[in-house]
Nucleic acid binder design. Sequence first.
DNA 1: GACTAAATTTCGGTA
DNA 2: TACCGAAGTTTAGTC
Lengths: 230, 230
Amino acid sequence: MRIVVADCSVDYAGRLSAHLPRAKRVLMLKNDGSILVHSDGGSYKPLNWMSPPCALAPVELSEEQAEAGIVEAWEVTHKKTADKLVVSLFEIIHDSSHDLGVDPGLIKDGVEAHLQELLAEQIELVGEGHTLVRREYMTAIGPVDILARDASGASVAIEIKRRGGIDGVEQLTRYLELMNRDPKLAPVRGVFAAQEIKPQARTLAEDRGIRCLVLDYDAMRGMEDQNTLF
Amino acid sequence: MRIVVADCSVDYAGRLSAHLPRAKRVLMLKNDGSILVHSDGGSYKPLNWMSPPCALAPVELSEEQAEAGIVEAWEVTHKKTADKLVVSLFEIIHDSSHDLGVDPGLIKDGVEAHLQELLAEQIELVGEGHTLVRREYMTAIGPVDILARDASGASVAIEIKRRGGIDGVEQLTRYLELMNRDPKLAPVRGVFAAQEIKPQARTLAEDRGIRCLVLDYDAMRGMEDQNTLF
DNA sequence: GACTAAATTTCGGTA
DNA sequence: TACCGAAGTTTAGTC
Protein backbone atom coordinates (compact mmCIF):
# COMPACT_ATOMS: atom_id res chain seq x y z
CA MET A 1 0.00 0.00 0.00
CA ARG A 2 1.38 3.35 -1.07
CA ILE A 3 -0.19 6.56 0.08
CA VAL A 4 0.44 9.78 -1.77
CA VAL A 5 -0.94 13.18 -0.89
CA ALA A 6 -0.57 15.43 -3.88
CA ASP A 7 -1.77 18.41 -5.83
CA CYS A 8 -3.08 16.65 -8.90
CA SER A 9 -5.58 16.41 -11.71
CA VAL A 10 -7.17 13.19 -12.90
CA ASP A 11 -8.71 12.06 -16.16
CA TYR A 12 -10.74 8.93 -16.67
CA ALA A 13 -11.88 7.40 -19.90
CA GLY A 14 -13.77 4.13 -19.98
CA ARG A 15 -17.42 3.46 -19.37
CA LEU A 16 -17.72 7.24 -19.20
CA SER A 17 -15.37 10.18 -19.42
CA ALA A 18 -14.61 12.15 -16.31
CA HIS A 19 -12.19 14.81 -15.19
CA LEU A 20 -10.99 16.07 -11.83
CA PRO A 21 -9.56 19.57 -11.88
CA ARG A 22 -6.31 20.30 -10.09
CA ALA A 23 -6.56 20.09 -6.29
CA LYS A 24 -4.95 18.46 -3.27
CA ARG A 25 -6.09 14.87 -2.81
CA VAL A 26 -5.15 11.58 -1.24
CA LEU A 27 -4.12 8.83 -3.63
CA MET A 28 -4.26 5.29 -2.31
CA LEU A 29 -2.29 2.83 -4.43
CA LYS A 30 -3.07 -0.73 -3.52
CA ASN A 31 -0.81 -3.69 -4.12
CA ASP A 32 -3.01 -5.11 -6.86
CA GLY A 33 -2.33 -2.00 -8.95
CA SER A 34 -5.65 -0.39 -8.18
CA ILE A 35 -5.89 3.24 -7.19
CA LEU A 36 -8.37 5.37 -5.25
CA VAL A 37 -8.56 9.15 -5.43
CA HIS A 38 -10.08 10.56 -2.26
CA SER A 39 -10.99 14.06 -1.18
CA ASP A 40 -11.74 15.23 2.32
CA GLY A 41 -15.48 14.75 2.02
CA GLY A 42 -18.09 12.55 0.47
CA SER A 43 -18.71 9.13 1.84
CA TYR A 44 -16.60 6.06 1.23
CA LYS A 45 -16.78 6.34 -2.53
CA PRO A 46 -13.67 7.86 -4.04
CA LEU A 47 -13.86 10.79 -6.43
CA ASN A 48 -12.34 8.50 -9.01
CA TRP A 49 -10.65 5.14 -9.05
CA MET A 50 -9.53 2.13 -11.05
CA SER A 51 -10.65 -1.31 -10.00
CA PRO A 52 -8.42 -4.36 -10.21
CA PRO A 53 -7.16 -6.08 -12.23
CA CYS A 54 -5.15 -3.13 -13.46
CA ALA A 55 -1.62 -1.85 -13.68
CA LEU A 56 0.00 1.48 -12.92
CA ALA A 57 2.83 2.78 -15.08
CA PRO A 58 4.67 6.12 -15.02
CA VAL A 59 4.15 8.30 -18.08
CA GLU A 60 7.03 10.09 -19.73
CA LEU A 61 6.29 13.79 -19.54
CA SER A 62 5.96 15.88 -22.65
CA GLU A 63 7.46 19.35 -22.74
CA GLU A 64 4.00 20.88 -22.51
CA GLN A 65 3.24 18.90 -19.39
CA ALA A 66 6.53 19.86 -17.78
CA GLU A 67 5.94 23.50 -18.66
CA ALA A 68 2.46 23.26 -17.17
CA GLY A 69 4.09 22.33 -13.89
CA ILE A 70 3.47 18.60 -13.92
CA VAL A 71 6.26 16.81 -12.09
CA GLU A 72 5.02 13.25 -12.57
CA ALA A 73 2.18 11.40 -14.31
CA TRP A 74 0.74 7.93 -13.96
CA GLU A 75 -1.34 5.90 -16.31
CA VAL A 76 -3.49 3.21 -14.74
CA THR A 77 -4.94 0.82 -17.30
CA HIS A 78 -7.45 -1.93 -16.73
CA LYS A 79 -6.23 -5.35 -17.82
CA LYS A 80 -9.50 -6.54 -19.35
CA THR A 81 -11.37 -3.47 -20.52
CA ALA A 82 -10.02 -0.35 -22.22
CA ASP A 83 -10.55 1.76 -19.11
CA LYS A 84 -7.78 4.23 -18.44
CA LEU A 85 -7.05 6.63 -15.63
CA VAL A 86 -4.38 9.30 -15.89
CA VAL A 87 -3.11 11.12 -12.82
CA SER A 88 -1.07 14.26 -13.35
CA LEU A 89 0.89 15.33 -10.28
CA PHE A 90 1.83 18.95 -9.78
CA GLU A 91 3.27 18.59 -6.30
CA ILE A 92 3.80 15.61 -4.04
CA ILE A 93 3.12 16.56 -0.45
CA HIS A 94 3.43 13.15 1.11
CA ASP A 95 4.52 9.75 -0.13
CA SER A 96 4.87 6.61 1.96
CA SER A 97 4.59 2.87 1.48
CA HIS A 98 3.50 0.26 3.99
CA ASP A 99 3.39 -3.49 3.95
CA LEU A 100 -0.03 -4.45 5.31
CA GLY A 101 -0.09 -8.15 4.55
CA VAL A 102 -3.27 -10.02 3.74
CA ASP A 103 -6.36 -8.92 5.62
CA PRO A 104 -8.31 -11.56 7.56
CA GLY A 105 -11.52 -9.95 6.31
CA LEU A 106 -14.76 -8.76 7.78
CA ILE A 107 -16.92 -10.97 9.94
CA LYS A 108 -20.53 -9.88 9.82
CA ASP A 109 -23.75 -10.91 11.45
CA GLY A 110 -26.31 -10.47 8.71
CA VAL A 111 -29.73 -9.00 9.05
CA GLU A 112 -31.95 -10.30 6.27
CA ALA A 113 -30.90 -13.91 6.91
CA HIS A 114 -31.59 -13.35 10.60
CA LEU A 115 -34.99 -11.82 9.86
CA GLN A 116 -35.93 -14.88 7.84
CA GLU A 117 -34.79 -17.18 10.64
CA LEU A 118 -36.74 -15.19 13.21
CA LEU A 119 -39.93 -15.10 11.16
CA ALA A 120 -39.69 -18.83 10.51
CA GLU A 121 -39.53 -19.36 14.27
CA GLN A 122 -42.30 -16.87 14.94
CA ILE A 123 -44.47 -17.77 11.97
CA GLU A 124 -47.62 -16.97 13.93
CA LEU A 125 -46.71 -13.30 13.38
CA VAL A 126 -48.03 -13.81 9.84
CA GLY A 127 -51.38 -14.82 11.29
CA GLU A 128 -52.91 -17.06 13.90
CA GLY A 129 -52.73 -20.76 13.16
CA HIS A 130 -50.03 -20.42 10.52
CA THR A 131 -47.49 -23.20 10.27
CA LEU A 132 -44.09 -23.29 8.62
CA VAL A 133 -43.64 -25.55 5.61
CA ARG A 134 -40.04 -24.60 4.93
CA ARG A 135 -37.56 -21.77 4.46
CA GLU A 136 -35.94 -21.18 1.07
CA TYR A 137 -38.61 -23.17 -0.76
CA MET A 138 -37.16 -23.80 -4.20
CA THR A 139 -39.07 -22.95 -7.36
CA ALA A 140 -37.90 -22.99 -10.96
CA ILE A 141 -37.07 -19.30 -10.83
CA GLY A 142 -35.47 -19.20 -7.40
CA PRO A 143 -36.14 -19.76 -3.74
CA VAL A 144 -39.15 -18.30 -1.94
CA ASP A 145 -38.03 -17.02 1.45
CA ILE A 146 -40.69 -18.83 3.44
CA LEU A 147 -43.50 -21.17 2.46
CA ALA A 148 -46.18 -21.58 5.11
CA ARG A 149 -49.78 -22.71 5.49
CA ASP A 150 -52.57 -20.71 7.04
CA ALA A 151 -55.08 -22.01 9.59
CA SER A 152 -57.19 -23.48 6.79
CA GLY A 153 -54.21 -25.27 5.26
CA ALA A 154 -53.84 -22.95 2.24
CA SER A 155 -50.34 -22.11 0.98
CA VAL A 156 -48.75 -18.78 1.85
CA ALA A 157 -45.58 -17.55 0.13
CA ILE A 158 -43.64 -14.97 2.13
CA GLU A 159 -41.02 -12.65 0.71
CA ILE A 160 -38.81 -10.99 3.31
CA LYS A 161 -36.90 -7.78 2.80
CA ARG A 162 -35.14 -5.38 5.09
CA ARG A 163 -36.50 -2.47 3.09
CA GLY A 164 -39.53 -3.30 1.04
CA GLY A 165 -39.48 -1.68 -2.38
CA ILE A 166 -41.30 -2.25 -5.64
CA ASP A 167 -38.69 -4.74 -6.85
CA GLY A 168 -39.47 -7.01 -3.91
CA VAL A 169 -43.17 -6.99 -4.81
CA GLU A 170 -42.29 -7.87 -8.40
CA GLN A 171 -40.12 -10.71 -7.19
CA LEU A 172 -42.93 -12.12 -5.04
CA THR A 173 -45.42 -11.66 -7.88
CA ARG A 174 -43.26 -13.79 -10.17
CA TYR A 175 -43.09 -16.53 -7.55
CA LEU A 176 -46.84 -16.40 -6.98
CA GLU A 177 -47.61 -16.65 -10.70
CA LEU A 178 -45.44 -19.71 -10.96
CA MET A 179 -46.61 -21.39 -7.77
CA ASN A 180 -50.25 -20.85 -8.59
CA ARG A 181 -49.74 -22.96 -11.70
CA ASP A 182 -48.73 -25.87 -9.48
CA PRO A 183 -51.93 -27.76 -8.54
CA LYS A 184 -50.26 -29.20 -5.45
CA LEU A 185 -49.75 -25.71 -4.07
CA ALA A 186 -52.50 -23.53 -5.55
CA PRO A 187 -54.07 -21.37 -4.40
CA VAL A 188 -51.04 -19.54 -2.97
CA ARG A 189 -51.45 -16.23 -1.17
CA GLY A 190 -48.57 -13.78 -0.93
CA VAL A 191 -47.24 -11.92 2.09
CA PHE A 192 -44.68 -9.16 1.71
CA ALA A 193 -42.79 -8.78 4.99
CA ALA A 194 -40.20 -6.10 5.66
CA GLN A 195 -38.86 -3.90 8.41
CA GLU A 196 -39.97 -0.95 6.36
CA ILE A 197 -42.38 -0.92 3.42
CA LYS A 198 -42.31 1.99 1.00
CA PRO A 199 -45.69 3.51 0.18
CA GLN A 200 -45.50 2.74 -3.55
CA ALA A 201 -44.52 -0.84 -2.83
CA ARG A 202 -47.45 -1.20 -0.45
CA THR A 203 -49.85 0.20 -3.02
CA LEU A 204 -48.59 -2.14 -5.72
CA ALA A 205 -48.66 -5.14 -3.39
CA GLU A 206 -52.17 -4.51 -2.15
CA ASP A 207 -53.35 -3.86 -5.69
CA ARG A 208 -52.19 -7.37 -6.48
CA GLY A 209 -53.79 -8.90 -3.43
CA ILE A 210 -50.51 -9.31 -1.58
CA ARG A 211 -50.67 -8.63 2.13
CA CYS A 212 -48.04 -6.37 3.67
CA LEU A 213 -46.48 -7.11 7.03
CA VAL A 214 -44.16 -4.73 8.83
CA LEU A 215 -41.63 -6.57 10.98
CA ASP A 216 -40.23 -5.23 14.23
CA TYR A 217 -36.72 -6.66 14.25
CA ASP A 218 -35.91 -5.67 17.81
CA ALA A 219 -39.15 -7.12 19.16
CA MET A 220 -38.59 -10.33 17.22
CA ARG A 221 -35.05 -10.59 18.53
CA GLY A 222 -36.40 -9.95 22.02
CA MET A 223 -38.84 -12.81 21.55
CA GLU A 224 -36.03 -15.06 20.47
CA ASP A 225 -34.02 -14.18 23.56
CA GLN A 226 -37.04 -14.98 25.72
CA ASN A 227 -37.53 -18.28 23.93
CA THR A 228 -33.93 -19.31 24.39
CA LEU A 229 -34.08 -18.47 28.07
CA PHE A 230 -36.23 -21.51 28.74
CA MET B 1 -7.58 14.61 6.39
CA ARG B 2 -5.65 12.42 8.77
CA ILE B 3 -4.08 9.20 7.60
CA VAL B 4 -3.13 6.53 10.08
CA VAL B 5 -1.54 3.21 9.28
CA ALA B 6 -1.96 0.92 12.25
CA ASP B 7 -2.25 -2.57 13.58
CA CYS B 8 -5.84 -2.50 14.73
CA SER B 9 -9.15 -4.27 15.23
CA VAL B 10 -12.52 -2.75 14.45
CA ASP B 11 -16.03 -3.36 15.73
CA TYR B 12 -19.19 -2.02 14.17
CA ALA B 13 -22.67 -2.09 15.57
CA GLY B 14 -25.53 -0.47 13.77
CA ARG B 15 -27.62 -1.75 10.93
CA LEU B 16 -25.66 -4.95 11.43
CA SER B 17 -22.86 -6.13 13.67
CA ALA B 18 -19.44 -6.68 12.19
CA HIS B 19 -15.93 -7.28 13.40
CA LEU B 20 -12.49 -6.93 11.88
CA PRO B 21 -9.80 -9.01 13.55
CA ARG B 22 -6.45 -7.47 14.38
CA ALA B 23 -4.35 -6.63 11.31
CA LYS B 24 -2.44 -3.78 9.70
CA ARG B 25 -4.73 -1.38 7.88
CA VAL B 26 -5.01 2.16 6.59
CA LEU B 27 -7.40 4.44 8.44
CA MET B 28 -8.58 7.51 6.60
CA LEU B 29 -10.09 10.12 8.90
CA LYS B 30 -11.89 12.81 6.95
CA ASN B 31 -12.59 16.31 8.17
CA ASP B 32 -16.30 15.68 8.59
CA GLY B 33 -15.52 13.06 11.26
CA SER B 34 -16.07 10.12 8.95
CA ILE B 35 -13.62 7.26 8.84
CA LEU B 36 -12.68 4.61 6.29
CA VAL B 37 -10.84 1.40 7.10
CA HIS B 38 -8.98 0.11 4.06
CA SER B 39 -6.93 -3.00 3.43
CA ASP B 40 -4.53 -3.60 0.59
CA GLY B 41 -7.10 -5.30 -1.62
CA GLY B 42 -10.73 -5.27 -2.54
CA SER B 43 -12.12 -2.51 -4.66
CA TYR B 44 -12.97 0.97 -3.55
CA LYS B 45 -15.26 -0.14 -0.78
CA PRO B 46 -13.58 -0.02 2.61
CA LEU B 47 -13.60 -3.03 4.92
CA ASN B 48 -15.56 -0.90 7.32
CA TRP B 49 -16.47 2.75 7.65
CA MET B 50 -18.71 5.36 9.22
CA SER B 51 -20.55 7.79 7.01
CA PRO B 52 -21.04 11.42 7.91
CA PRO B 53 -22.50 13.06 9.85
CA CYS B 54 -20.54 11.49 12.64
CA ALA B 55 -17.96 12.32 15.29
CA LEU B 56 -14.78 10.64 16.43
CA ALA B 57 -13.80 10.63 20.10
CA PRO B 58 -10.93 8.92 21.91
CA VAL B 59 -11.94 6.21 24.36
CA GLU B 60 -10.37 5.94 27.78
CA LEU B 61 -8.68 2.56 27.95
CA SER B 62 -9.66 0.00 30.54
CA GLU B 63 -6.99 -2.05 32.28
CA GLU B 64 -7.99 -5.10 30.27
CA GLN B 65 -7.57 -3.21 27.03
CA ALA B 66 -4.17 -1.89 28.07
CA GLU B 67 -3.08 -5.35 29.13
CA ALA B 68 -4.27 -6.71 25.79
CA GLY B 69 -1.81 -4.37 24.15
CA ILE B 70 -4.20 -1.66 22.98
CA VAL B 71 -2.46 1.69 22.96
CA GLU B 72 -5.36 3.82 21.82
CA ALA B 73 -9.04 3.43 20.96
CA TRP B 74 -11.53 5.57 19.06
CA GLU B 75 -15.26 5.59 19.09
CA VAL B 76 -16.96 6.96 16.01
CA THR B 77 -20.67 7.58 16.52
CA HIS B 78 -23.21 8.58 13.95
CA LYS B 79 -25.06 11.78 14.78
CA LYS B 80 -28.51 10.67 13.66
CA THR B 81 -28.65 6.91 14.03
CA ALA B 82 -27.25 4.73 16.82
CA ASP B 83 -24.47 3.39 14.59
CA LYS B 84 -21.17 3.02 16.33
CA LEU B 85 -17.70 2.07 15.18
CA VAL B 86 -14.90 1.27 17.62
CA VAL B 87 -11.29 1.14 16.48
CA SER B 88 -8.77 -0.44 18.83
CA LEU B 89 -5.18 0.40 17.95
CA PHE B 90 -2.35 -1.92 18.93
CA GLU B 91 0.42 -0.10 17.13
CA ILE B 92 0.50 3.09 15.12
CA ILE B 93 2.85 2.73 12.19
CA HIS B 94 2.17 6.01 10.50
CA ASP B 95 0.17 9.10 11.38
CA SER B 96 -0.03 12.29 9.35
CA SER B 97 -2.51 15.08 8.72
CA HIS B 98 -2.98 17.15 5.60
CA ASP B 99 -5.08 20.15 4.74
CA LEU B 100 -6.69 19.37 1.40
CA GLY B 101 -9.17 22.19 1.11
CA VAL B 102 -12.49 21.83 -0.65
CA ASP B 103 -12.48 19.67 -3.74
CA PRO B 104 -13.79 21.18 -6.99
CA GLY B 105 -15.51 17.87 -7.70
CA LEU B 106 -15.83 15.47 -10.56
CA ILE B 107 -16.91 16.56 -14.02
CA LYS B 108 -18.46 13.67 -15.89
CA ASP B 109 -19.92 13.00 -19.27
CA GLY B 110 -22.77 10.65 -18.49
CA VAL B 111 -23.75 7.61 -20.42
CA GLU B 112 -27.38 6.66 -19.91
CA ALA B 113 -28.56 10.24 -20.20
CA HIS B 114 -26.47 10.58 -23.33
CA LEU B 115 -27.85 7.33 -24.76
CA GLN B 116 -31.37 8.64 -24.30
CA GLU B 117 -30.48 11.90 -25.96
CA LEU B 118 -28.87 10.10 -28.89
CA LEU B 119 -31.75 7.69 -29.39
CA ALA B 120 -34.23 10.57 -29.29
CA GLU B 121 -32.25 12.23 -32.07
CA GLN B 122 -31.90 9.01 -34.03
CA ILE B 123 -35.36 7.64 -33.33
CA GLU B 124 -35.45 5.94 -36.74
CA LEU B 125 -33.09 3.35 -35.19
CA VAL B 126 -36.19 1.97 -33.48
CA GLY B 127 -37.77 1.41 -36.88
CA GLU B 128 -38.41 3.18 -40.15
CA GLY B 129 -40.96 5.96 -39.99
CA HIS B 130 -40.83 6.32 -36.20
CA THR B 131 -41.25 9.78 -34.78
CA LEU B 132 -40.41 11.17 -31.34
CA VAL B 133 -43.29 12.24 -29.12
CA ARG B 134 -41.15 13.18 -26.15
CA ARG B 135 -38.38 12.16 -23.79
CA GLU B 136 -39.13 11.49 -20.11
CA TYR B 137 -42.85 11.07 -20.76
CA MET B 138 -44.47 11.28 -17.33
CA THR B 139 -46.84 8.63 -16.05
CA ALA B 140 -48.33 8.17 -12.59
CA ILE B 141 -45.59 5.72 -11.67
CA GLY B 142 -42.66 7.56 -13.17
CA PRO B 143 -41.22 8.81 -16.44
CA VAL B 144 -40.92 6.59 -19.51
CA ASP B 145 -37.56 7.22 -21.15
CA ILE B 146 -38.93 7.84 -24.64
CA LEU B 147 -42.44 7.90 -26.07
CA ALA B 148 -42.60 7.61 -29.85
CA ARG B 149 -45.01 6.71 -32.63
CA ASP B 150 -44.41 4.13 -35.30
CA ALA B 151 -45.07 4.59 -39.03
CA SER B 152 -48.76 3.77 -38.52
CA GLY B 153 -49.11 6.28 -35.69
CA ALA B 154 -49.26 3.74 -32.85
CA SER B 155 -47.59 4.54 -29.53
CA VAL B 156 -44.22 3.04 -28.66
CA ALA B 157 -42.78 3.23 -25.15
CA ILE B 158 -38.99 2.85 -25.02
CA GLU B 159 -37.01 1.98 -21.93
CA ILE B 160 -33.30 2.63 -22.21
CA LYS B 161 -30.63 0.95 -20.12
CA ARG B 162 -26.91 0.68 -20.37
CA ARG B 163 -27.09 -2.95 -19.34
CA GLY B 164 -30.44 -4.55 -19.89
CA GLY B 165 -31.45 -6.90 -17.09
CA ILE B 166 -34.69 -8.38 -15.85
CA ASP B 167 -35.42 -5.40 -13.62
CA GLY B 168 -35.48 -3.12 -16.65
CA VAL B 169 -38.01 -5.37 -18.39
CA GLU B 170 -40.17 -5.34 -15.27
CA GLN B 171 -40.00 -1.57 -15.17
CA LEU B 172 -41.09 -1.27 -18.78
CA THR B 173 -43.84 -3.83 -18.23
CA ARG B 174 -45.28 -1.70 -15.42
CA TYR B 175 -45.28 1.36 -17.66
CA LEU B 176 -46.93 -0.56 -20.49
CA GLU B 177 -49.67 -1.93 -18.25
CA LEU B 178 -50.49 1.56 -17.06
CA MET B 179 -50.26 3.25 -20.45
CA ASN B 180 -52.40 0.63 -22.11
CA ARG B 181 -55.22 1.59 -19.76
CA ASP B 182 -55.11 5.11 -21.18
CA PRO B 183 -57.44 5.20 -24.22
CA LYS B 184 -55.58 8.19 -25.66
CA LEU B 185 -52.38 6.12 -25.88
CA ALA B 186 -53.46 2.49 -26.22
CA PRO B 187 -52.35 0.32 -27.81
CA VAL B 188 -48.77 0.94 -26.66
CA ARG B 189 -45.96 -1.33 -27.80
CA GLY B 190 -42.78 -1.66 -25.75
CA VAL B 191 -39.17 -1.47 -26.90
CA PHE B 192 -36.35 -2.40 -24.56
CA ALA B 193 -33.17 -0.69 -25.73
CA ALA B 194 -29.76 -1.22 -24.19
CA GLN B 195 -26.09 -1.38 -25.06
CA GLU B 196 -26.13 -4.95 -23.84
CA ILE B 197 -29.16 -7.16 -23.23
CA LYS B 198 -28.82 -10.22 -21.02
CA PRO B 199 -30.27 -13.42 -22.46
CA GLN B 200 -32.74 -13.93 -19.62
CA ALA B 201 -33.94 -10.35 -19.92
CA ARG B 202 -34.37 -10.81 -23.66
CA THR B 203 -36.38 -13.98 -23.14
CA LEU B 204 -38.64 -12.33 -20.59
CA ALA B 205 -39.11 -9.26 -22.77
CA GLU B 206 -39.92 -11.20 -25.93
CA ASP B 207 -42.25 -13.46 -23.98
CA ARG B 208 -44.18 -10.32 -23.09
CA GLY B 209 -44.18 -9.01 -26.63
CA ILE B 210 -41.55 -6.39 -25.91
CA ARG B 211 -39.07 -5.85 -28.69
CA CYS B 212 -35.36 -5.77 -27.83
CA LEU B 213 -32.99 -3.32 -29.44
CA VAL B 214 -29.24 -3.40 -28.92
CA LEU B 215 -27.70 0.06 -29.15
CA ASP B 216 -24.23 0.75 -30.48
CA TYR B 217 -23.14 3.74 -28.45
CA ASP B 218 -20.02 4.49 -30.47
CA ALA B 219 -21.90 4.31 -33.77
CA MET B 220 -24.64 6.54 -32.41
CA ARG B 221 -22.09 9.02 -31.16
CA GLY B 222 -20.41 8.86 -34.55
CA MET B 223 -23.73 9.67 -36.21
CA GLU B 224 -24.15 12.62 -33.93
CA ASP B 225 -20.70 13.92 -34.82
CA GLN B 226 -21.57 13.56 -38.50
CA ASN B 227 -24.85 15.35 -38.00
CA THR B 228 -23.23 18.24 -36.20
CA LEU B 229 -20.65 18.59 -38.96
CA PHE B 230 -23.25 20.00 -41.31
C1' DG C 1 -18.30 -18.53 -15.34
C1' DA C 2 -22.73 -16.31 -15.79
C1' DC C 3 -26.36 -14.35 -13.64
C1' DT C 4 -29.25 -12.67 -9.73
C1' DA C 5 -30.13 -10.24 -5.71
C1' DA C 6 -28.41 -7.49 -1.77
C1' DA C 7 -25.84 -3.51 0.09
C1' DT C 8 -24.12 -0.47 6.78
C1' DT C 9 -24.90 0.65 -0.56
C1' DT C 10 -23.86 6.05 -2.29
C1' DC C 11 -25.36 9.63 -5.38
C1' DG C 12 -28.14 12.57 -8.02
C1' DG C 13 -32.61 14.35 -9.49
C1' DT C 14 -37.33 15.59 -8.76
C1' DA C 15 -41.82 16.30 -6.64
C1' DT D 1 -37.08 16.83 2.53
C1' DA D 2 -38.56 12.34 1.00
C1' DC D 3 -38.68 9.20 -2.56
C1' DC D 4 -37.00 6.91 -6.59
C1' DG D 5 -33.78 5.17 -9.86
C1' DA D 6 -28.90 4.86 -11.55
C1' DA D 7 -24.14 3.58 -10.51
C1' DG D 8 -17.60 3.25 -14.12
C1' DT D 9 -21.94 0.57 -8.78
C1' DT D 10 -19.42 -3.59 -5.62
C1' DT D 11 -20.18 -7.88 -3.44
C1' DA D 12 -21.95 -12.25 -2.22
C1' DG D 13 -24.35 -16.35 -3.38
C1' DT D 14 -26.39 -19.68 -6.58
C1' DC D 15 -26.74 -22.30 -10.69
